[in-house]
Simulated assay, not measured.
Amino acid sequence: METREKGPVGRPRGFDADEALERAMRVFWEQGYEGASLTDLTSAMGITRTSMYAAFGNKEDLFRKALERYAEGPAAYGVRALEEPTARQVATALLHGSVQATTRPGCPTGCLGVQASLAAGSPGLNARDALIAWRNEHTARLRDRFQRAVDEGDLPPDTDPEQLARYLMTVANGIAVQAASGATRDELQQVADLALRSWPGA
């Protein structure tokens, strides 16, 4: 695909930046941060390295943009789950969403937020730190939602919101790892249902 530059520092033209970012996201999702080479990325995106740098920055910048796209797309179920009316429904939506997202036909299995950081040597430390911050932020939002549930009497008063949030995130991340290892949607749905049976007050 021909790429036309508007001067040496101009924004590249001749390609769809949104589509290119979508393709980059899938490469990172499937191969992880370190496993995704610049050749893999630019080939999938259909652009040159020069165009990639001009439009998205370096590999780390591109990864952060891809993670943002992932959070707003395939992983958006996590934010939506927080809006459920009860804490149990929040947990159900989160775990069921994790099962659906990590086993979606036509997409890489597993979770970009988990897979991309499993094998991060020194070149991938910044990407790993970005992923840790992303996961910790969601755990904190889940904790705050469960604290509200305790305050409103939706969860028993002796519930530890921090512990409950970390438990759910651990199960959701485990589902992602199992999906990447070949577990089926039905198998993972059973895992999610089993975890929900131990819900406080159930």
Score class of each variant (00 low, 15 high):
residue 3 T to Q: 02
residue 3 T to M: 11
residue 6 K to C: 10
residue 13 R to G: 15
residue 13 R to P: 06
residue 14 G to W: 01
residue 14 G to I: 07
residue 19 E to A: 14
residue 20 A to D: 05
residue 26 R to F: 09
residue 28 F to T: 04
residue 29 W to A: 10
residue 31 Q to R: 15
residue 32 G to T: 02
residue 35 G to H: 04
residue 35 G to W: 02
residue 44 A to F: 00
residue 45 M to R: 03
residue 45 M to T: 04
residue 47 I to M: 07
residue 51 S to M: 03
residue 52 M to L: 13
residue 55 A to T: 03
residue 57 G to H: 10
residue 57 G to Y: 08
residue 59 K to A: 09
residue 60 E to W: 11
residue 63 F to M: 06
residue 66 A to F: 02
residue 67 L to I: 06
residue 68 E to M: 10
residue 69 R to H: 15
residue 70 Y to N: 12
residue 79 V to K: 13
residue 80 R to V: 07
residue 83 E to L: 09
residue 88 R to W: 07
residue 89 Q to F: 08
residue 91 A to V: 02
residue 93 A to R: 06
residue 95 L to C: 03
residue 103 T to A: 06
residue 105 P to A: 04
residue 112 L to K: 08
residue 118 L to N: 05
residue 119 A to F: 15
residue 121 G to K: 05
residue 123 P to T: 09
residue 123 P to D: 08
residue 128 R to Y: 13
residue 131 L to V: 05
residue 132 I to L: 12
residue 133 A to G: 01
residue 136 N to C: 13
residue 140 A to W: 01
residue 148 R to W: 12
residue 151 D to Y: 05
residue 152 E to F: 03
residue 158 D to Q: 15
residue 159 T to Y: 03
residue 164 L to N: 00
residue 165 A to S: 09
residue 165 A to L: 13
residue 165 A to Y: 09
residue 166 R to C: 13
residue 166 R to F: 13
residue 168 L to G: 03
residue 173 N to V: 04
residue 176 A to I: 10
residue 178 Q to V: 09
residue 180 A to W: 01
residue 182 G to K: 01
residue 183 A to F: 08
residue 188 L to E: 08
residue 190 Q to W: 14
residue 190 Q to P: 05
residue 195 A to W: 11
residue 199 W to Y: 13
residue 200 P to Q: 07
residue 202 A to E: 13
